[in-house]
Design a protein around this nucleic acid. Sequence first.
DNA 1: GCGATAAAGTGAGGGTGCCTCCGTATATTA
DNA 2: TAATATACGGAGGCACCCTCACTTTATCGC
Lengths: 190, 190
Amino acid sequence: MNEPSQASRQMRVDAQRNYASLLNAARVAVSERGADIVLEDVARSAGVAIGTLYRHFPTRQDLLDAVFLDETNELRVRAEELASAPVPLDALISWFRLLMDFAARGRSMGAAIMAAKHVQGTRIHTSNKAMHEAGKVLLFRAQAAEQIRTDVQIVDVLRLIYGIVMVNEYASDPDGTNRMLDLVIAGIRT
Amino acid sequence: MNEPSQASRQMRVDAQRNYASLLNAARVAVSERGADIVLEDVARSAGVAIGTLYRHFPTRQDLLDAVFLDETNELRVRAEELASAPVPLDALISWFRLLMDFAARGRSMGAAIMAAKHVQGTRIHTSNKAMHEAGKVLLFRAQAAEQIRTDVQIVDVLRLIYGIVMVNEYASDPDGTNRMLDLVIAGIRT
DNA sequence: GCGATAAAGTGAGGGTGCCTCCGTATATTA
DNA sequence: TAATATACGGAGGCACCCTCACTTTATCGC
């Protein structure tokens, strides 16, 4: 919606600076408190008035989207890298673990993305879709190698993983989280 | 905390009436809007002032606990009934499906219970624990019949199911939900 | 450099919902 | 029927949300 740079016309430099500052403050806040950040606090720690925050991010979701955009992009890149790993199943599992780590680090990422991904045309929707596609490649490879059941869909697996992450926000139990992922992996193998 | 009847002394009849009325209004509200009910609305539709709501349910969580208490009790009873079904695996799976239905009906039950279950001594904690125990019996039977892996723990499976339910609050997709449960079941079978 | 002007920033203020507190009302008991 | 414990009511203070009319400033053509 309000990218720092557009094809047609550059944002003013003060606007770019404030955008970056807000995004940065939001990142810190999210990593500390999850999705229920206080927008006025974010604005304050960005050294900006609340109106400016709303100029750049008209809704809370827009701000969260921007925060998580990097993560989904990063995860897409990682999936693309893993697509050339020797053992398809190992690559897929490695990617799942990355997914869980990222989601756990950026608290509430699961919920935020689930909420965001349906709104067509947003940057997060696009990025999330690209990440799905990259994950799908990993899945296909593992299916071609007959290591994963052919009737498994990437969307279901990703949702299960987000589900684990969401549950984990209440019951923080690293071992349990790993065991749950292992169960899911067992469920999709041939 | 504030049960309608205590061993030591009965609640006043007006208090009992209001308690029931509040609980009822909360049930309706939760089924309509999930856990983010507006407490003042609940009080109003119960025909009671906000102070009265807080007298009976000092925190939002207390109210949600009371709403979901019936559900967990019911699920425990169902598990106990299913413990005498002929095929242990079928019994277990039937119970899982019940669990998902209940959780989907009482929106946000997953999140509410995850939030509640840690606070020792609450009624919901007790009830939830009893439900777990009843589920564990079903799991043990299926494990004894060599239909479920012996290294599977009931807590992990229940969390996975709650995870599915939570994800499903964002992406409502009944088929997907069933597929996810099937994956989990596949993951725990021998 | 120097206006002109579109873009961006500001923050008071109105709105919503949360929760507390204490004065009032009433069920219960003797 | 009076005394008293119990419960009820709802105004009010608080936190956070979000908007909008106004001010400030970066940018651009000269």
